[in-house]
Design a binder for these strands. Structure first.
Ligand code: ZN
Ligand code: ZN
Ligand code: ZN
Ligand code: ZN
Lengths: 161, 161
DNA sequence: CTTGAACCTACAGTCGCTGTAGCTCCCATA
DNA sequence: TATGGGAGCTACAGCGACTGTAGGTTCAAG
């Protein structure tokens, strides 16, 4: 009974199954473990990782949240909240709101950029490099329609402190 | 005469002046030198870098192009073109077009994300974590409006090969 | 028993910087 | 001319979120 129950209630996946089922790469799973985002799983006699359903769910959450663009530290906070299901979700919503704000800020910056780049291309007569509108605008901010340039973020969602 | 001419025609800036005039950080200038984006400048007897007008212009170009979000390897190509001013600007325009395409792709992905995140927040009744719409959507792609998730780019502008 | 896929650890590389430690240099003022 | 302090120097680690590689071990099918 104990054995049968154990077998049916706790499936044991090797890391490759976890990867396939969640769409994550094997290395990424090990990376998440190394930074403490996933707990250390059980191991076989031969030292290979074996996961249960809860780990699969947890990784699924992480993957889905990453698909939404949440940075890992936000995901860590969200996971902590799922461990306290009776608590208020205000904090969770706040994390989502912050992320949404960041996404909107990024959209704004990129749209400004889109305008600038489009104008560059439109107004170039496509002759020599010396006459190239794009090259000339880049050489000289005076020729530039933007009065200033907001930095385009290269690192994902970290708001500037 | 030689001295006077030299003094007036070739100003010699220390690295800090270059940084101030272009809005770049000193370390960034040294980094650009280390990756070969800026040539090695002259040095004083005490081994300190001294720059001339051409270096200042080159760094200005790099800074401005970075403000437009161009990745460094694209900037490298654009700088190579400014050394051949009589050549056709087709290649330069192509680089700009590629970048514009990338910017538009990013905007698209972020707008999809914006919609998803907005819906999450709107449809949450702000009760417990267990009932939180955001947490539940993240826990289960079935509850998710998106049929699939395009990855949100974390690394700038490099098109997937 | 053999093969080969899957797994293991450890570490380097990506991109574009930024920050730090521990020096040396330069210039203005006293 | 001495001195103080700001500016410069090299070298290296760290960021975020992985990805790739080398060189080995384990496991399950045939
Ligand atoms: Zn052109
Ligand atoms: Zn400009
Ligand atoms: Zn909520
Ligand atoms: Zn989904």
């Amino acid at each position: 009974m104990t054995e049968a129950a154990t077998n049916t209630t706790t499936p044991r996946y090797p890391i490759g199954d976890l990867a396939r089922q969640t769409g994550t790469k094997v290395q990424t799973i090990r990376y998440y473990e190394s930074i403490g985002l996933l707990p250390q799983p059980a191991r076989t006699a031969g030292n290979q990782r074996v996961y249960g359903q809860d780990q699969l769910d947890r990784l699924g959450f992480i993957k889905h949240a990453r698909d939404f663009g949440f940075p890992l530290d936000a995901i860590r906070e969200l996971l902590d909240m799922t461990d306290r299901p009776a608590a208020s979700c205000v904090e969770a919503d706040e994390i989502v709101r912050r992320h949404l704000g960041e996404v909107r800020r990024r959209i704004g910056r990129l749209q400004a950029l889109e305008g600038e780049l489009g104008r560059m291309l439109e107004s170039c007569s496509h002759g020599t490099v010396a006459d190239c509108r794009a090259i000339n605008v880049l050489s000289d901010h005076e020729k530039c329609c933007a009065t200033s340039h907001e930095p385009v973020e290269t690192i994902p969602y970290r708001a500037p402190d």
